[in-house]
Amino acid sequence: MRREGEAVEYHAATPVLELHGAETEAYLQALSDEVPSLYVVMREAGGGPQPYEVLKVTASPYEAQDYTDSGNELVEKVPMPHGLVAWIREFIEAHHQDEVFVKRKRDKKRIDLVEDGIGDARIAKPGDIYASPTLKRRRLQ
């Protein structure tokens, strides 16, 4: 689009920003940053006038982190326009549901009292639980 010194501005794509109701926690995280931002996921293009192709634009920092973990894509943080911040905030207000923290409770059942699978069922005495069974030998007459 324009060149200013060593900086070059490209119009790489016009991607669609999709928001999902299950991801509102991530969007809240993005809006709580000092500068609310979108994340542009790009991959090197194989030749051509543009060095990168745009794969995705997301408002979720968690999804952006997943793309950076692979190392194959380049993820750039781009400040959100004010109108987009308002739109995402409205989406969050309409779809966000706080998840209630439920602490896991342990059973009172004692599982260490039963020794299932220890020893051999052919051993009669409990004291010989780790003994090897002996074969009964018949006398040949």
Score class of each variant (00 low, 15 high):
35 V>N: 15
36 P>T: 05
36 P>V: 00
37 S>P: 07
38 L>W: 12
39 Y>M: 05
39 Y>P: 11
40 V>E: 05
41 V>W: 02
41 V>L: 03
42 M>W: 04
43 R>M: 13
43 R>Y: 07
44 E>H: 13
45 A>F: 08
45 A>R: 14
47 G>A: 08
49 P>Y: 13
49 P>L: 13
50 Q>N: 14
50 Q>D: 15
50 Q>A: 15
51 P>N: 08
52 Y>N: 08
52 Y>I: 07
52 Y>T: 09
52 Y>Q: 09
53 E>M: 15
53 E>S: 15
55 L>P: 00
56 K>E: 13
56 K>L: 11
58 T>M: 15
59 A>C: 15
62 Y>A: 12
62 Y>M: 11
62 Y>D: 15
62 Y>K: 12
64 A>N: 03
65 Q>A: 09
65 Q>V: 12
66 D>W: 03
67 Y>E: 06
68 T>M: 07
68 T>Y: 00
68 T>F: 00
70 S>K: 01
70 S>R: 01
70 S>L: 03
71 G>I: 02
72 N>T: 03
72 N>M: 05
73 E>H: 07
73 E>K: 01
73 E>D: 04
74 L>N: 07
74 L>Y: 10
75 V>W: 00
77 K>L: 02
77 K>M: 06
77 K>N: 06
77 K>Y: 02
78 V>E: 10
78 V>D: 12
78 V>R: 10
79 P>W: 09
80 M>V: 03
81 P>W: 01
82 H>F: 05
83 G>I: 01
83 G>C: 05
83 G>T: 02
87 W>P: 04
88 I>N: 09
88 I>T: 08
89 R>N: 10
90 E>V: 01
90 E>K: 09
91 F>V: 02
91 F>S: 05
91 F>I: 04
93 E>I: 01
94 A>F: 00
95 H>Q: 04
95 H>R: 01
96 H>T: 02
96 H>E: 13
97 Q>N: 13
98 D>A: 15
103 K>P: 04
103 K>C: 03
103 K>D: 10
107 D>N: 09
108 K>Q: 08
109 K>L: 02
109 K>I: 09
109 K>H: 05
109 K>G: 00
109 K>F: 00
109 K>M: 04
111 I>G: 05
111 I>R: 11
111 I>Q: 10
111 I>K: 08
112 D>W: 02
113 L>E: 13
113 L>T: 10
115 E>W: 06
115 E>I: 00
115 E>P: 00
117 G>E: 08
118 I>E: 11
119 G>I: 05
120 D>T: 02
120 D>F: 00
121 A>P: 01
122 R>P: 03
123 I>C: 10
123 I>A: 10
124 A>C: 14
